[in-house]
Design a binder for these strands. Sequence first.
RNA 1: GGUCCCGUGGCUUAGCCAGGAUAUAGCAUCGGGCUUCUAACCCGAGGGUCGGGGGUUCGAAUCCCUCCGGGAUCGCCA
Length: 570
Amino acid sequence: MLSLFLDFKRQVTVALENALYTLGLKTDDLGLEPSQHADIASKVAFRLAAQTKSNPMEIAERIVAAIELPENSLIGEIITVGPYINITVGRNYLEKTVKRITQEQESFGGGFCNGKILIEHTSANPNGPLHVGHIRNSVIGDTLVRILKKAGYEVDTHYYVNDMGRQIAIVSWAFSRFDFDSSKKPDHAIADVYIKANALLNEDPGKVSEIDKLMQLVENGDQSTIKSFDDAVALAISGIKQTLLRMNIIHDSFPHESSFVRSGAVFRIIEEIKATGRTKDDNGALVVDLSDYGFEKTMVIQRSDGTSLYTTRDLAYHEWKGKYGDRIIDVLGADHKLISGQLKATLNSIGKPEPEVVIFEFVSLPEGSMSTRRGKFIPADDLLEQIEQGAYLEVDRRRPQMPEKFKKEVASMVGIGAVRYDIVKVSPEKSTVFDWKDALDFEKQGAPFIQYSHARACNILNKAQDEGKWDMGYQADLSLLTEDTEVSLIKKMAAFDSIIDICARDLKPHTIAVYARELAEAFNQFYRFVPVVSAEEENIRASRLALVNCARIVLANSLDTLGIDAPESM
RNA sequence: GGUCCCGUGGCUUAGCCAGGAUAUAGCAUCGGGCUUCUAACCCGAGGGUCGGGGGUUCGAAUCCCUCCGGGAUCGCCA
């Protein structure tokens, strides 16, 4: 169903274009934009000032005078402020919004897109636990998944498992030399031996040839080596899955790199690339020339010992994805900027669909960049543990009389929500430095603020129900919702679907985070300004309860899109 | 050194791609508000050379050039 806001915008466009036609004017840009001064504003007078050789203010006046609105328009008022044309929504728009939210409930705000999307995110190497940098990928990726699903797409989420790279060879090699602590969470135990092995390889570079040998064995299908790789990978992935699940993140499938070697897909795609004539031999390695795509350096797709690289296997993986998805999306760290550009160029050169790549910049530590290999990282599990403990103290302080189970559940929802919100609210292209004090700060107006607003709405509805003052079926008189705080709350709720639409198109998940916060703010302002359950007149009380119910729904939908739980009480 | 990303009040940050109305919020600071639906809230105040300098334009945080600072990357790692 078309978004009411977009419908409103469309009506504004038609009204303005008709007015311009009447005046004998023409432009291809109405300059429509959201504005703090109106629900939508047009800068078209600026565009036409030169054309008509008159000043913009005058043009604006003439345009507004020429506008004719049809019956039942969603448009309310159209006025000029200097050269700007400011348009506000009408009662029709506001009342339709409340009706629609009440009807559509959880499905409100989406369902306008269709098609299949394959999205890949996280895909961290299975050589240790996820750290606080990896989960930026996970949270951005999972939020995109939720946005795209909300928009109406069928979404398949992948974690691409590197089960045959050098890192995994080192892990497998480490297993034969160091004790594996099976009392630990498996991904953490893997990191322990991986770090030791790297230290040893550093001291004794002669042992590197043993790693190379393992990689060749795996590529050539040696069963026992493959099994030792697989066992290590499975252990790491099982731990990683636990961490992701704790953050409300689930992948539909875990395609393994090795499957593209063993199926012959890697061999076939190398042949396809060779057929373009852009490959050449470089000291025994096979390289691709992408200079016509703006890449000065060639890209290696086969080592001189004949084994494949991550890049090659990734090409085969993307070729496969291109067959099954209408849109292919990869969420990757900034270190993949160059390689993903080369990947896209190579796919393009053999006529295959290219992925849309969402790049996020790195999370570093105050002392420098993180490294699993050197053991310099903060595991995501540590962060989640500490934040939940911090959240528990807060809940215990505020609701001491509540049972233990309640406190634990709320602490978990609030803690995880705070982590997810803190990550997703920052736009991906900013690099960040992890700071414990900041990460554990509950005073910021983040997820708990939004969750609390939702709990507050639930609480009002519960109270009204207990007092026999609320009945879902009651037809509220929506024309009574005229207070400023009521109107701005409705406008904010109405914007939800257009925000989803923008997020799904631009793949910018931080937009929905900002929106959710603003929605909570609008609801809190309403809550402070007007009484609901205690409203004197019954029909006013009923209309406000209908509004609170809408707020509850849209807050819940927003939180769900952010992958944050919406507590009914906290 | 080449290429890409970032630089916005003390700190964090929106807006930049599609240039326009007093530059957006949060934290922190200061002041006000709980006999009234959970104050994890609300209202208000102070605080900004939008990294520096040029340019384009009637108009630049936004586009172009240049310099400075931070991050990423520059073939047989992923």
